[in-house]
């Protein structure tokens, strides 16, 4: 009952929130919502101990797939978003064959190479990917009404509500997976793969499973993004974006479910409110670089370690 009340309050707060901020901040809210899904899905991948540099490109696979099936085949946009997620998961499944012959640093570099190859393929094949200019005029979500509220997707508030519902559902699924025996097995594969294997765990299958699920949700995030901004190109998913995702995850800490989400929210607020207000947007990479270095040097467990310190102290009292 208490949990239900907390979630009800959160939901009401999220419904009110966009009405309190400016138009450009409403847009930021939409991006933040989508980015939360990207970074939360990235964490699922890191559960098995592998760090990928291809996650953002996989997100792009979802974006391209959804943009193409809605634009070329006229598929209904919400279905297109699901197709985006499925395509990203499928590509990840194919990539898992070469990539999971590698581990650690080699996996990192291999995922980077695979991602770059995909990006170059988008660039090279103008048909259907639109080459370096990408795809323009991607179908927006069709407007609809649920009686009490009229969704008008030219308004960021409407898209925020829509994406928040989708992302909340995805986060709930990710959470269920992590707290299930499957999630426990992911942890086991990470911490002591030999013992896990001796307990009958097929390491390759579980690494692949984590990679495919994480990629599927990244694909949904990419599709959500594509139908909001309406235009995507290979540079929308380049390594710079990947570095931001990595920064959110590391600054937040990957030890808990909420860590990366916290990192994403805190850095977005810093970025949009502090930097934009101070007119320092040009220095964004500089600040991100400094934050990345400082947090790896002085806060290796991320922001979540601060939260944990706080909550532990409260319990002790």
């Amino acid at each position: 009952m208490r949990n239900f009340l907390i979630w009800a309050v959160v939901a009401v707060a999220l419904i009110i929130l966009p009405n309190l901020v400016s138009f450009s901040q409403q847009e930021v809210l939409v991006f933040l919502t989508i980015n939360i899904l990207v970074v939360a899905s990235y964490r699922l991948l890191t559960l098995t101990g592998e760090w990928s540099l291809g996650h953002v490109v996989i997100m792009g696979v979802g974006a391209y797939a959804s943009a193409l099936v809605t634009k070329e085949l006229g598929l209904w946009v919400p279905l297109g978003i699901l197709v985006g997620g499925a395509s990203a998961a499928f590509i990840a499944f194919l990539l898992s064959y070469p990539l999971f012959r590698m581990k650690g640093f080699y996996f990192l570099i291999g995922s980077f190479a695979a991602g770059e190859i995909i990006r170059l393929l988008w660039k090279r094949f103008r048909d259907p990917f639109g080459g370096a200019k990408g795809i323009k005029g991607i179908d927006p979500m069709p407007d609809f009404s649920i009686g009490i509220y009229q969704f008008d997707f030219f308004e960021p508030v409407s898209y925020f509500y829509f994406s928040a519902v989708v992302v909340a559902l995805c986060l709930w699924i990710l959470w269920r997976i992590e707290k299930s025996p499957v999630g426990l097995t992911f942890h086991a594969v990470h911490w002591q793969d030999k013992l896990a294997q001796a307990s009958g765990v097929n390491l390759r299958s579980y690494r692949t499973l984590a990679f495919v699920i994480a990629s599927g949700f990244a694909g949904i995030a990419g599709a959500l993004l594509a139908h909001y901004i309406g235009t995507i190109n290979p540079n929308s998913f380049d390594v710079e974006v990947m570095v931001f995702v990595l920064t959110w995850a590391i600054v937040g800490g990957t030890g808990t479910f909420y860590g990366p989400i916290l990192g994403c929210i805190v850095l977005t607020i810093l970025n949009e409110i502090v930097l934009r207000e101070l007119g320092l947007e040009q220095t964004r990479p500089l600040i991100y670089g400094l934050i990345l270095i400082l947090s790896i040097l002085f806060m290796p467990n991320g922001l979540e370690s601060i939260v944990q310190k706080f909550t532990r102290r409260k319990e002790a009292k």
């Binding site: 025996p181 499957v182 426990l184 097995t185 086991a188 307990s199």
Partner: peptide, 11 residues
């Protein structure tokens, strides 16, 4: 984790 084989997780 030791019970993995008997009670195979189903996602």
């Amino acid at each position: 984790v030791g019970t993995h084989m008997t009670f195979r997780p189903n996602i």
